[in-house]
Amino acid sequence: MTSPLQKKIKIHGPSVVTANRTSDGVVIWRTADHGWSTDLDDAAIVRDGETARALLTEATADDVGAVGPYIAPVTIADNGTVLPGNLREQIRNTGVTIELPAQV
């Protein structure tokens, strides 16, 4: 199978690299200072295929810290806040859209 890193990467607008933390599966985003954050606001934003590939490549190299990095779309609000680009990413960012049973 071709690794995603060997394919041409096309992005349509601002994007981030996200994954799940190995130790507990928590959603994380790749930061500009080569680490991970649990806060989308800290994510490095990429705007073209080449930069996206570079960010994904370094994220993928951290196999101990993160599982399954991939590029995800974001939108940037007028005030500069980074917002998830689709419902799946929104749910990953803010959690399930339902009340958890134990809290009912």
Partner: peptide, 10 residues
């Protein structure tokens, strides 16, 4: 061992 990775966690 029944361990999957989902959106937010294992």
């Amino acid at each position: 061992n029944g361990v999957y990775l989902q959106l937010h966690a294992y």
